[in-house]
Amino acid sequence: MNKKRKKIRLSWNKKCCICMFPAIIGTLVFSLIPFIRVVYYSGIKNQFDTSFALFSNYERVWKNEYFRIAFKNSVQLILICVPILVVIAILISLILVFGKMQKRRIQIAFILPMVIPTAGIAVIWRQFFSEIDNIIPVYLLFIWKNVGICIILLTAAFASIQKDVYEAAYLEGANSVRRHIYMTLPISAPTIFFTTLLSIVNSFRIFKESYLYYGTNYPPDYGYTLQYYMNNHFLKLNYQNLSASAVFSTLFAGIVIAAGMSFIRRFQN
């Protein structure tokens, strides 16, 4: 009896493993194995002289003036835009969850931009901000588009807080602002951190918004991000520079992601 049962379980386990194969093979073929090639390209001199140049490609990329501008702008986007985005999302979510009004319909308005294709909205954005020549329109587009996912995650976290947590605060006469600062926000801190990390990750992807807004490969300097740099080298098919900057961006993104994840892990324990 016991033996038979064990046999069945084993085959079930194998079947579950086989379930993963199609996706894993696809990922290997289209992403991971080619990525090894990218690392290889980033280390050689050029396609015809494949001797190893170690870090000279990286050095060239790092010393490039445009790469530096792009890097600075990408960091600036994370430092300025992401905090604003998260604060706006927290405020809206608080009102949606704790305010006393018809919230279903209102919530739809905030979340809709998330699924709206950027290309469909870039035209009106250009019309709105035709007079302005700084980065703010792109920042606004980024916030407009990303507030939705933050609100979905935050409202779920706020709504799951037990109501009796607030009773003691009620009795002590704390007003609603204090209640939320000292209770709601600390209780849902892991979700808030995760939302922040997700927004940082989304800020790496701002290229599409920016590209459709400016409509050119060469935007003004303040709008030039790492993705433009890579895109332009892509069009030139400059493999060595491209690979080096891809590896560099992977490391940059990887470090930010890993740091964020381990911070959240530590906080949860």
Partner: peptide
């Protein structure tokens, strides 16, 4: 580990995954 790899892949900027994709497709 497999799940972590997918999590990191999901969070990678598109411009980073495009080049491996392009090379894979070209082959």
């Amino acid at each position: 580990i497999i799940f972590m790899i997918y999590l990191i892949l999901m969070m990678m900027p598109l411009q980073v995954t495009l080049l491996p994709n392009y090379i894979g497709l070209r082959e």
